[in-house]
C-alpha cells in the first residue's frame, strides 16, 4: 500500500526512472471510488465493507507494482472498483434502514399520542356526561322534594281542617253554609234562663271549641246570640247580645285573636224551628259561631 502510494506520487511527478507506466483506467477508477466511499458516511455506517474495499484496492495496487500492464492488474482494479461501489450500496441500505426505523418509531409514537388524546377526550366527555347526569338527577330530586313538600303541606292543611271539623262535630252541631262553617250551641247548655253568665259545663264545651278554632286562628269568627219568640223585642236583643258577647270574651280569653272575632245579638229575628212547641223554642235559644270560609286580612 505504502509502496503503491509512493509509486503513484513518483509517477505524478514524472520523469523519474522506473516509472515508465501510467496506471490503467480501471485502477484510476478504483482509487477514485475508494476515495469517495471512504470519505463519506459509509466509513462509519458500513466500516467492514469499506475495509474490504480497501483490501481489494491494495491487492490491485500490488499487482500494478508487480506487473503494470497485465490484464490481471486491470481485472483486480475492476473488482476493487466494484467493492467500493458495494460498500457504498450497503451503506445506503443501512442509512435507508435507519430512516425507515425512525419514521416507523415516529409513526408509532404519534399514533400512541393520538390514541392517548382520543382516550383523554373520551374520558373528558364521559366525565362531562356524568356531571350532567348528576346535575339533572339533583334537579329532579329537588323538584320531587319540593312537590312532596307542597303535597305534604296541602295534606297537612286538609287534615287540620278535617280534624277541626271532626272535633267540633263531637261537641256541637256543625253545618257548612254559604257564610261559612256554622257551629250551633244550645242556649240551655251554655246559660241559665234569662242569664248571660256561662255555666261551668259550658266553659268545658267552649274550651274544646276554642281549641278547634285555634288551629286556624287567621279566620274571621262571628258569634251570634239567638232567642225564642217569647218576651219583648228589645229584651231579647239585649239578652242575645250579652250572651254572644260572653261567648266571644271567653274565646278571646282562651287565646283567639281579638281582631278576628266579634259578637252580635240577633234576638228572635232568625228562628231555626217553630216557636209554637217547647222543643222548637229550645232549638231557637242558641249561640251560633260562624267561621268565615277563608282568612280575611281586615277585621270587620
Amino acid at each position: 500500500m505504502k509502496k503503491a502510494v509512493i509509486a503513484t506520487i513518483a509517477c505524478a511527478l514524472g520523469g523519474i526512472a522506473g516509472c515508465a507506466h501510467n496506471p490503467p483506467q480501471e485502477l484510476i477508477e478504483a482509487r477514485q471510488n475508494y476515495a469517495t466511499v471512504s470519505s463519506g458516511p459509509a466509513a462509519t455506517v458500513a466500516p467492514a465493507e469499506v475495509h474490504k474495499a480497501r483490501e481489494s484496492l491494495a491487492i490491485a495496487e500490488r499487482a500494478f507494482l508487480d506487473d503494470p500492464d497485465a490484464q490481471r492488474t486491470r481485472d483486480l482494479a475492476y473488482v476493487a472498483t466494484r467493492k467500493a461501489q458495494i460498500a457504498q450500496a450497503i451503506a445506503n441500505r443501512e442509512m435507508e434502514g435507519r430512516r425507515k426505523a425512525q419514521a416507523e418509531q415516529f409513526y408509532q409514537s404519534k399514533q400512541g399520542e393520538m390514541i392517548q388524546k382520543v382516550k383523554g377526550d373520551l374520558n373528558q366527555t364521559k366525565a362531562q356526561l356524568r356531571e350532567e347526569q348528576i346535575r339533572q338527577s339533583a334537579a329532579l330530586d329537588q323538584e320531587r322534594q319540593a312537590r312532596a313538600q307542597a303535597e305534604q303541606r296541602a295534606a297537612d292543611a286538609d287534615k287540620r281542617s278535617k280534624e277541626m271539623l271532626e272535633a267540633l262535630d263531637k261537641m256541637a252541631q256543625v253545618k257548612e253554609e254559604e257564610r261559612g262553617t256554622v257551629i250551633t250551641l244550645s242556649g240551655s247548655v251554655l246559660f241559665l234562663t234569662n242569664e248571660a253568665i256561662l255555666l261551668p259545663n259550658a266553659q268545658v264545651r267552649l274550651d274544646q271549641v276554642a281549641e278547634a278554632l285555634l288551629t286556624t286562628p287567621d279566620r274571621d269568627v262571628l258569634v251570634e246570640g239567638h232567642t225564642d219568640s217569647r218576651g219583648t223585642e228589645s229584651y231579647n236583643l239585649d239578652l242575645s247580645r250579652r250572651r254572644a258577647e260572653a261567648v266571644r270574651s271567653y274565646l278571646v280569653s282562651r287565646g283567639y285573636p281579638v281582631e278576628h272575632i266579634r259578637a252580635e245579638g240577633i234576638g228572635k229575628a232568625r228562628p231555626i224551628a217553630p216557636n209554637s212547641t217547647a222543643d222548637g223554642r229550645a232549638n231557637n235559644r242558641r249561640v251560633e259561631i260562624i267561621i268565615s270560609p277563608k282568612a280575611k286580612s281586615e277585621p270587620h
Binding site: 450500496a89 450497503i90 441500505r93 435507508e96 425507515k100
Partner: peptide
C-alpha cells in the same frame, strides 16, 4: 453489486413508504 443495489433500493422504497 447488483444484489447490494437492489437491497438498498428495496430499503429506500420501504423507508419512503414509512
Amino acid at each position: 453489486l447488483a444484489l447490494a443495489m437492489a437491497r438498498a433500493d428495496q430499503e429506500r422504497a420501504e423507508a419512503q413508504g414509512a
